[in-house]
Design a protein around this nucleic acid. Sequence first.
DNA 1: TCCCAGGTGTCTC
DNA 2: GAGACACATGGG
Length: 218
Amino acid sequence: MLADVYRVLLAQRGHQGWWPGETAFEMAVGAVLTQNTSWTNVERAIANLKAAGVLEARVLLGLPIDDLAALLRPAGYFNVKARRLQALAAFLVDRADGDPTRLPAGDPTRLRQDLLAVPGVGRETADSILLYAVGVPTFVIDAYTRRLFGRLGLLDPEADYDELRATFEAALPRDPGLLNDFHAQIVAHAKDTCRPRPLCPECPFANWCPTAPREGGS
DNA sequence: TCCCAGGTGTCTC
DNA sequence: GAGACACATGGG
């Protein structure tokens, strides 16, 4: 059933070619900056980092924390995120010469544990980095995922993160490209048609979703 | 003027 | 272990 949702979304939108980011490090930075924040605000902060020439692990790590926070201001929680980004940059420099694609992915469970030990990297952020920056076949459970699948009545949106992640990973091929695209489809769908209000005006799940408008309905 | 947005860490009970 | 709260900007 979960795979059916992907097929419906893929048929509607085609492959998404996502996550936005020119480098793996930029994707990892985006994963931290998007915490409880809209992507448009994240884009502003990333543009600031690029303009300042600090979107590289070692450079970012060497920046005074207040200077980094000032660049991150549009993304909100800038003091918190400045500390989190430097912690992540330190981890990447130490383990992968600053390049997430060079992280040792042979034992993904161990790598996930190591990422979770970095201050400011929780489960969603760790999985976003693993999937989008490293290419590990893991599934990202975010607010959009909970909202869509909760509405479809396929999953309990309040369920534990790892429980939901295990459900998705058991139902889908261990293909990072597919898992990447599936999550991207969920995000695109949520942004276009499945916001909390108004509900699903052109939702492809009109016959599934208990809150979507029904044919001939009021 | 509110409410919301792709979380996480800390504190309290 | 669960729940409350802090962290902050920008758009609708």
